[in-house]
């Protein structure tokens, strides 16, 4: 099992190196306690996140996916996060068509100095996923 049964669900986070990964570091340095469900994958820019990564994660085992980048206009690569915003917004609307509750996917902007905001984002999203419950019930029953 990848997660501790009964306590955790699988949440995958794609964080841009310059802002949100740093924001998560800031939250850590400041010891802002968070739920432990999230597994973080570092990407250079939120614009690097292929929507198919999100879909792949949700189809193969994740119960929720979070993408976080720099605030719009403050992208380290000028406008990588604008591309991310378009693609991910589109993805959000497409998810119900493949039978996935769109609330299982969330994208947000957290800067490197916003440790507290990061704590809030992780806590809120984790709570939301716990309310929705596991996505892969069938698989678990079979297993």
């Amino acid at each position: 099992m990848s997660v501790v049964a009964g306590k955790e669900l699988r949440i995958v986070g794609f964080l841009c190196n310059w802002c949100s990964y740093g924001g998560a570091d800031t939250a850590g340095v400041s010891r802002f306690k968070q739920p432990t469900d999230l597994r973080i994958i570092k990407v250079p820019c939120s614009g690097r996140v292929d929507p198919l990564f999100v879909v792949r994660a949700l189809l193969t085992g994740a119960d929720g996916v979070l993408v976080s980048g720099c605030h719009p206009r403050d992208c380290h690569y000028t406008d990588g996060n604008f591309y991310a915003r378009r693609r991910l917004e589109m993805l959000k609307r497409l998810l119900p068509f493949v039978g996935i509750d769109e609330r299982r996917f969330h994208y947000t902007w957290v800067s490197a100095s916003e440790g507290q905001k990061w704590q809030q984002v992780v806590t809120d999203f984790t709570n939301r996923i716990h309310q929705l419950g596991p996505l892969h019930v069938k698989k678990e029953n079979e297993g």
Binding site: S2, E8, R31, K33, Q34, P35, T36, R39
Partner: peptide, 21 residues
Amino acid sequence: REHISWIGEDKELNTNKAIEA
């Protein structure tokens, strides 16, 4: 450290998360 040991309170969950990471 920043993403696990400093933010999680439960040692079992932290250890499991670290294994995954």
